[in-house]
Nucleic acid binder design. Structure first.
Length: 451
RNA sequence: GGCGACGUGGCCAAGUGGUUUAAGGCGGAGGUCUGCAAAACCUUUAUUCGGCGGUUCGAAUCCGCCCGUCGCCUCCA
């Protein structure tokens, strides 16, 4: 299997540090709002990676954090006259609701920054002891100039010359590009006791501390959005490699592309977001997953609800394969191995899900056209096996029916009477009426079906 | 200013030197089936890959120039 490593900027053969065990860490969300479709993109991509690695026989340990203490959470709590715990708890629940709705498997561990404060403090202490960090007015900063490799992931070395006006002059940092490990708290802000001040952790340190605690000094895969490459992931490398002296901290860096909305990145600060929970009211999880996975994960797709809608249509055929195909054991068995090979070859090539999906559509077509001449049971098993890797479960979008089943059956029998009398106009009228209620009628040799 | 990506049919999107005169999805056209539909299946829908040069026996795929679009560099998946 090959994976594109953002660090080397090349596709590399995937060989975990331990041949049977894969340790992966995915940057989670800051919980101050509902998760949006950009988060769905990232979560689905790494969910598929997780499922595929397990399919390939690895033991996989996946950890995804929650940043549950941060300026934005505090601001929101102030605005809503409540505590940051209540805010973060609310949006963690919302996150899980969204992820369950998208059929994203839970990670093995979902650590929260506030639950690992002691590890974070110990980590910072270690960095100070080793000379990589310094205290300043109760806050602690990482001394970027002490870490020779700074910039090796992102290539951003001379960024301090970019725009010094962006640096908050109130911080007492040695260099503009030093970043906070510990922030002293102001006024009524939440705080934890530390050797330096009552305060809270900086953003980047939690990931370093949690990775060390839950996965060890060196991990196989670290994933997240491209927007995190700098400064977040650059800073993680600086912290972790300085603390443990083990290099590389991460063997494979994976970054998904950013979902765009009419040219701009979808982002909470731009206010152009579309929440996952909202999307799930209008589209099935399969449609959202297929739409996302039909583009390669390193591209920046444009959000277009019409495209998700057309994906929903393409699912009709796949759902029918999953639920309606009847195979005949008396017929000669058909071999479908070539589809499996195509699928695996595609996924082995840096998760080429568009190609993998094309294989599933071709497999579906082959099953459909062969049912009367061959036993397609193995094709069906394979179809479900491959679909599962992509997290497609073929459940329909649950919409509350405005009409109950008995009434539908009554209308259908009424229509069939009309059909027997060859009163086609009346029959079509009833069909249209049912359609307007969201009920689709299909006349088959075994009678009329509806869904 | 620095780092980087991309430009493929009406739309979305794979493919990155020869089995590709370009996969798959949506949409369009015709057909089988049907009372008519729907679904399914069959046929069809880019001699062409932003433009111009070059390398090569051979390029959408490599190189150069030009045009255009976009991402990151600041909290963000």
């Amino acid at each position: 299997m090959k994976i594109y490593n953002s660090f080397s900027r090349k596709k590399e053969i995937f060989e975990p540090n331990n041949p049977e065990q894969v340790n992966m860490y995915i940057c989670g969300v800051t919980v101050y709002d509902h998760s949006h479709l950009g988060h769905a993109l990232s979560s689905i991509v790494f969910d598929v990676l997780y499922r595929y690695l397990k399919y390939k026989g690895y033991n996989v340990k996946k950890v995804q954090n929650f940043t549950d203490i941060d300026d934005k959470i505090i601001n929101k709590a102030v605005k809503e006259k409540t505590s940051s715990e209540i805010i973060s708890e609310k949006y963690i629940k919302s996150f899980f609701h969204s992820m369950d709705g998208l059929n994203v498997l839970r990670s093995n561990i979902h650590p929260r920054a506030t639950e690992d404060i002691q590890e974070i403090i110990n980590f910072i202490k270690g960095l100070i002891d080793k000379g990589f960090a310094y205290e300043s007015f109760g806050s602690v900063y990482f001394d970027v100039k002490k870490f020779q490799d700074y910039g090796k992931l992102s290539g951003n070395i001379y960024f301090e010359e970019y725009d010094s006006s962006r640096i908050d002059q109130n911080y007492n940092k040695k260099h503009s590009n030093d970043f906070a490990l510990w922030k002293t708290s102001k006024d009524s802000e939440p705080y934890w006791d530390s050797p330096w001040s009552k305060g809270r952790p900086g953003w980047h340190i939690e990931c370093s501390a949690m990775i060390k605690k839950h996965l060890g000094n060196q991990i196989d895969i670290h994933g997240g959005g491209m927007d995190l490459t700098f400064p977040h992931h650059e800073n993680e490398i600086a912290q972790s490699e300085s603390f443990t002296s083990k290099k590389p901290f991460v063997k494979y860096w994976m970054h998904n592309g950013m979902l765009r909305v009419k040219g701009a990145e979808m982002s909470k600060s731009l206010g152009n977001t579309y929440s996952i929970n909202e999307a799930l009211k209008n589209f099935s999880s399969d449609a959202i997953r297929l739409w996302i996975l039909q583009s390669h994960y390193r591209t920046n797709p444009l959000l277009d609800l019409g495209l998700i809608h057309s994906t929903e249509k393409s699912l009709i055929r796949l759902r029918a394969i999953n639920s309606e195909i009847i195979f005949n054991p008396k017929l000669e068995e058909m071999n479908f191995d070539r589809f499996k090979k195509r699928f695996i070859d595609a996924m082995d090539d840096d998760l080429n899900t568009p190609k993998a999906i094309a294989t599933i559509f071709d497999l579906a077509k082959m099953i459909n056209k062969s049912t009367s001449t061959y036993n397609v049971s193995e094709g069906l098993i394979l179809f479900r096996e491959l679909s599962n890797i992509l997290g497609l479960d073929y459940k329909k979008l649950e919409k509350e029916s405005k009409i109950d089943a008995l009434e539908i059956e009554f209308m259908i029998s009424k229509r069939n009477k009309a059909r027997q009398n060859k009163s086609w106009e009346e029959a079509d009228l009833i069909r249209d009426e049912l359609l307007s209620l969201g009920i689709e009628i299909t006349d088959t040799s075994e009678g009329t079906k509806w869904k």
